[in-house]
Design a protein around this nucleic acid. Structure first.
Lengths: 219, 219
DNA sequence: AGATGTTTTAAACATTTGTTTAATAATCTT
DNA sequence: AAGATTATTAAACAAATGTTTAAAACATCT
């Protein structure tokens, strides 16, 4: 078994286990046994459990955010060319669609869809820390563009509504395709296109709404 | 130190630690040391770590959902008396407001605000399992009333949009009052009234929106 | 082929985990 | 006050944790 194979096997196995059980609840032995490699392999190839966790995020989150950034840039350029402000719906689609469609590409990324959904709100500090660092550059651009699309909203209002959207997206990714939610009565695996459209419509409506009371409030 | 004192001390300390670190990352020794009691006290009074976790949720979630249920009942009765369907905004307020105002009442419930926010999406199975069992009765009523308020929406649409709201609420509770998010530039501790109104407006707009495309879709 | 560098392996490392035990202390009952 | 419950304590339990080690196996290159 070559060098790359082992690293890959570990990444895949750990990704799946972290997604299913969470960071703390996943042991090195569970990872290495699932990957079919020696216990010491993780420390040899990645250094530590935390470094492995980071590598998993690097592998998926970087290309994911690159896709999102590219789409945001296209939206911004197109809007500038037409002299209009960018549409909130398109911005939110650039944010929401890629992670939910992630699973369609390569196998194994199904697990990351769940993992990423959890990591938005994971109570574990390790997950939170790593996730934040990798998301920060993209979040800045996202907030900027939302401000352009919704200039009547304050910085605080944009920030919080963006957080609401993040929460809704995280929840969606957390329960979509998760077998543990199968006891519920409704169909949890609807047409993905419909689900995405539904979430985007929800997010756009929420983003664009005006609040009745507390007009002088910053939110 | 009397019997009740010890149990209370353990509940308070564990609640705070579970909220800050998560279930798995919190050790029995950390709990008992923080509570100023003997290590064996948790097993003696509660039986196990998991049973303690459950007790924490019982203590807070039961009265919380009782308040919410009572408000839902009032809304339903009032609507029935007027021959109208209940307003989505009022229903969502009954769901959103109590947990966010939780912290205003007794001290210590600040921690539970964070803990409950995490537990909506906690990757840990223990948290998820216990939380679901305690939420199920309320969720049923909530979905019923949302169906009454928005009769043009299908069961699936109601379910998913309710999940979106849950996600947005969880995210809000997760970051509000959480010191770890203080590096961000915006003011994370706005007026609570404004924040609640903002989230409810967001949720109502999202709930009531109609989707442009995929008109024949169940969502 | 032989030497060099890399990867894998099994074993042991020192901690930490949740839980249990048996003795002591405190509280309540009669 | 004596006896019977109940609560607390320190110590030890077995099991699991992430990590390190040193030898073995493999690969690569001159």
């Amino acid at each position: 078994m070559g060098h790359l194979d082992t690293k890959q096997q570990i990444l895949d196995a750990a990704e799946s286990l972290f997604a299913r059980e969470g960071y703390q609840a996943t042991s090195m032995r569970a990872i290495t046994e699932s990957a079919g490699v020696n216990l010491a392999a993780v420390n040899y190839h990645f250094g530590s459990k935390e470094a492995l966790f980071e590598a998993i995020f690097e592998r998926r989150l970087r290309p994911l955010n690159e896709v999102r950034q590219k789409r945001l840039k296209e939206i911004r350029d197109e809007a500038k060319r037409q002299g209009l402000k960018p549409a909130a719906g398109e911005i939110l689609r650039a944010f929401i669609e890629p992670p939910l469609r992630f699973k369609e590409s390569r196998k194994g990324e199904v697990d990351f869809t769940i993992l990423i959904g959890r990591s938005f709100i994971d109570p574990d500090d390790t997950a939170q820390k790593i996730f934040f660092r990798l998301m920060k550059p993209f979040s800045r651009v996202m907030l900027e563009m939302l401000s352009e699309a919704l200039p009547e909203l304050s910085r605080e209002a944009i920030f919080w509504r963006y957080q609401f959207v993040i929460g809704a997206l995280a929840r969606t990714m957390r329960i979509y395709k998760n077998p543990k939610f199968e006891t519920m009565k409704v169909n949890l695996k609807p047409d993905l296109d419909s689900l995405i459209d539904s979430l985007i419509s929800f997010a756009v409506a929420g983003m664009e709404t005006t609040i009745g009371k507390c007009k002088d409030s910053p939110l």
